[in-house]
Design a protein around this nucleic acid. Sequence first.
DNA 1: GCCGTTCTGTGCGCTACCGAACATTCCGGC
DNA 2: GCCGGAATGTTCGGTAGCGCACAGAACGGC
Lengths: 234, 234
Amino acid sequence: MGNHLLAALTGEEMRRLRPHLEPVTLQRRATLHETGSRVLHGYFPTECVISMVHVAADGNSTEIGVIGNEGCTGASAVATGGGVPLRAVVRAPGAAFRVKVAALQAEFRRGGRFQRVLLRYMRAVIGQSAQIAACNRRHSVDQQLCRWLLSGLDRAADNQLAMTQEGIAAMLGVRREGVTEAASSLQKAGLIRYSRGRIAVLSRGRLEARACECYKLLRGETERLVRDVYSAKL
Amino acid sequence: MGNHLLAALTGEEMRRLRPHLEPVTLQRRATLHETGSRVLHGYFPTECVISMVHVAADGNSTEIGVIGNEGCTGASAVATGGGVPLRAVVRAPGAAFRVKVAALQAEFRRGGRFQRVLLRYMRAVIGQSAQIAACNRRHSVDQQLCRWLLSGLDRAADNQLAMTQEGIAAMLGVRREGVTEAASSLQKAGLIRYSRGRIAVLSRGRLEARACECYKLLRGETERLVRDVYSAKL
DNA sequence: GCCGTTCTGTGCGCTACCGAACATTCCGGC
DNA sequence: GCCGGAATGTTCGGTAGCGCACAGAACGGC
């Protein structure tokens, strides 16, 4: 149950990086980095889930990407220094490795496998954000909720998700009432059960059927990413 | 009137790359690369404008990013090989440099300034797509149209844009009628004048005032990008 | 067991946008 | 000068989501 990006490194790279890997437990809703501000650490989730969120001037937020144990935060900061254009929030608490950006940068600049892995990951991030952007535009709250639940479920240990409807609404960029309605409809249909911020997915299959095709595409992209980072061809 | 990414290279890098720079004139609406397919060339606009467009299974499209002489296509393909997750379409015709991906990759792997420039550019792309995603979700067709016009204008030679309302609708991911209505309202207010695919911007200032704040943010990000690629600190 | 807080449910009027159908205007080619 | 196609204009009913206001329900601390 490690992190795929780290697991894909060569032995030598891992030896160099290991002293800088700091195991941490991330608390729900913690903000790991803030829009525009300087990034000090990259986080490599092993058991937690992190959301990348765009924050508008009026405080409205929109989730642009999700990071589980297939990714990391701050990749672009590692590649270029400076800040990232998004806020990173812990969506599901749990274990992760924290690494100083400087250490990551040093390894990145060596131009080895770590660099290729991180670049491949950045490509996935761009694709993911494009897909979510299109989904935002086109699909109903109901469909998006299904996609959101599944994207969390794929990265979770069990069939449980911890998030209030208020929180989900903020991520999807819709009203809380809209989420209430969609969630209540899902519950009536027996796909999920929830209460006060705890959601249990009862029928993953039916949830997938109800979600828009964006979910399948996003999932496929993630699987390709994982395959690629382990591939000798990278 | 060159391309900023190329202009920021060192003399030595430019000497190596110059033999591979192929000046081309891009025709309006040409598709430079297609979603998912293998990318053979990167394009560095000098006088044209290119749109990065997400295409859904049903054919619906959504513009995720714009590229003028501050950027290039296929950056992520250069960094990692393989395809890009978006379609690139010529939005305004004109000159560009075409370069084989293999040549770009070779230069990228040297790990010099070109690499840092391209990475910095990828960071801008991620930020841009996040901003546009949020804008898609939140703002009215009218506001988005203003933003779209301005984003083209910034990269155009004069105050003219060539694009039918049908075309704009496809980029913004809205109905053609919605664009007709918004455009006609802008014309009545004296901000633009248009006819059959030719749009003239009459009052840039008022257009900016009417656009959502996304435009200013996107523009600021682009300006920072251009500043950074020329900066010695990169 | 009480109470404040957090979370969820519901109703209402409103607006922006959608989908479809059709009318009109303009341009370029013959 | 005529004609076909492309671009734009307009209308109409339908609906998803918004903003607001408030009601109930559950949990957590004391």
